[in-house]
Design a binder for these strands. Structure first.
Lengths: 192, 192
DNA sequence: CCTTTTCTGAAACGTTTGATTCAGAATAAA
DNA sequence: TTTATTCTGAATCAAACGTTTCAGAAAAGG
């Protein structure tokens, strides 16, 4: 009966995500966003909604991408410890390569204290990340690659929060070797 | 020959710091700030400067307070390991008690990527924090309380970035027990 | 006291903000 | 093709933004 939406919503969210990622929620203006998304603000308000709704969708999109990555890694049939070590090395590479750090952490510190929806998304993301680690640890123990008296729950929780600090370190020191050494020490610790 | 400044600059900075701490740089408006500081914007611009300058001063003030705390703890004559453990427990208490998390971390993620002055202040703060830990570790080893094959440099760096992640965890999960358990595990690790 | 310099408070600056309006183009269904 | 509906783009909204202005109050030095 009528006209269809002209722009690709998924692509637009992707582009908006990059803007929020770089500038933060308050630092990104609607003009920044609509320019990057290549749509008019009326189209934005007719389809997605206001700035907060757009931000929520972007954060959700970001965590969706991570979830996909975790699922792929979990599906691997290689030894769990190998998968875990590779994941850590990959995380380090991202910390070093990504100029704008991590959207999830930035959003947590800027928005999760005041926006309950953002907090819920990031909490779910964090819990999924821990479940991913827990599962790998459980497997690695079963495969005899790791022996520990600590519970996989505690270790997963601990590991997950450990490399968050690496992001901040890299912002301040911009020193890849620093991060790599910490990761090296971290991996060495797991083996014990 | 003339009138003196009416307001106490140190007190005003302290009040502005609390606003930035809660709302972030972009989230805090000049009206928020001048209202909290109980001064007129003309006074602000005549004495301190613009918003960025005020923010820099607030972050500097925040890191100055931390530095004082570290110096006091370093001056203690009690066993170094004891001082270290107490410091960690104190850090945990702050994470749990402080509703607005940590200004230094928030500023790092929001501003340090785009504002070189903020980055420099936070980098110096981070380095001082590491030196504090390094010194405690060095003493603890000398006192025979710790034995490790790792360098104090690496360990200090690693420790320092470890509890940054705890802040994010607490924002998302608001779970004091989670943090306490991680701290417990962390302290246990040091002893080994 | 008077003079000189400085600080304060209220008002306003131009700009940018997030958000809305609406005429007209576009298109799916009848 | 017509009709009914929806989307788009440009213009615009009021509010809030960071910042500046300036008259007048304040006070230290002579």
């Amino acid at each position: 009966m009528a006209r269809n939406v002209e722009f690709n919503e998924a692509e637009a969210i992707q582009k908006a995500m990059r803007v929020f990622w770089e500038k933060g929620y308050h630092g990104a203006s609607l003009r920044d966003l609509t320019t990057a998304m290549q749509i008019n603000s009326s189209s934005l308000y007719n389809t997605i909604g206001d700035k907060e709704e757009l931000f929520v969708r972007c954060v959700q999109h970001y965590t969706d991408l991570r979830k996909q990555d975790w699922q792929l890694r979990l599906a691997s049939e290689r030894p769990a410890l190998e998968v875990l070590v590779e994941y850590i090395q990959c995380a380090v590479d991202i910390i070093i390569a990504e100029e704008n750090s991590c959207l999830a952490i930035k959003a947590a510190f800027e928005m999760a204290t005041s926006d309950e929806r953002v907090r819920a998304i990031l909490k779910a993301d964090s819990e999924y990340g821990e479940a991913f680690l827990r599962e790998l640890l459980r497997k690695a123990v079963a495969q005899g690659a790791i022996q520990t008296e600590e519970s996989p729950e505690l270790l997963a929780d601990y590991f997950n929060s450990t490399w968050k600090g690496w992001h901040e370190s890299y912002i301040l020191h911009k020193d890849p070797i620093r991060i790599k050494k910490m990761a090296q020490y971290f991996i060495k610790q797991i083996g014990k």
